[in-house]
Computed example of a mutant assay.
Amino acid sequence: MLTALEVFTTVTVGLMVGVEFSVAFVINRILDALPEDSALLGRAHGGRMLGALMPVWYIASLALSAVWAIAAWGESAAKLVVVAAALLLLSVIMSVALLVPINNRGKTWTPENRPDDWKEQATRWDRYHYARVAVIIAAFTLLAAALA
Rank of each mutant, 00 (worst) to 15 (best):
M1D: 10
L2Q: 14
T3C: 00
T3L: 10
T3A: 07
A4W: 10
T9L: 08
V11P: 01
V11E: 04
M16P: 01
M16Q: 09
V17L: 12
G18S: 07
S22M: 14
S22F: 14
V23M: 08
V23F: 01
F25T: 12
F25V: 15
V26W: 02
R29Q: 03
I30H: 08
I30A: 15
I30F: 12
D32H: 15
L34I: 09
P35T: 14
P35W: 10
P35F: 05
A39P: 00
A39H: 14
G42A: 06
G47A: 14
A52C: 10
L53H: 07
P55H: 02
I59T: 13
A60F: 09
A60V: 14
L62C: 13
L64E: 01
A66H: 01
W68Q: 06
A69I: 05
I70A: 13
I70T: 06
A71M: 13
A72D: 11
W73N: 11
W73P: 00
G74F: 02
G74M: 08
G74R: 08
S76M: 09
A77H: 13
A78C: 04
K79R: 14
K79I: 05
L80F: 04
V82M: 00
V83R: 02
V83H: 01
A84W: 00
A84G: 04
L88H: 03
L88R: 04
L89W: 08
L89Y: 04
L90I: 10
L90N: 05
L90Q: 11
S91G: 08
S91K: 08
S95L: 14
V96H: 06
V96P: 05
A97D: 08
A97R: 14
A97P: 05
L98I: 02
V100S: 02
V100F: 05
P101Q: 04
P101E: 09
I102L: 12
I102M: 12
I102E: 06
I102D: 02
N103G: 00
N104G: 11
R105F: 02
G106K: 09
K107H: 10
T108F: 00
T110R: 13
T110K: 04
P111Y: 10
E112H: 04
E112T: 08
E112Y: 05
R114E: 05
P115E: 11
D116Q: 13
W118E: 06
W118Q: 06
Q121S: 03
A122L: 06
R124G: 00
R127P: 01
R127G: 10
Y128N: 09
Y130D: 13
A131W: 05
R132W: 02
A134N: 01
I136T: 12
I137L: 12
I137E: 11
A138C: 06
A139D: 05
L142V: 10
A145Y: 07
A145H: 08
A146I: 07
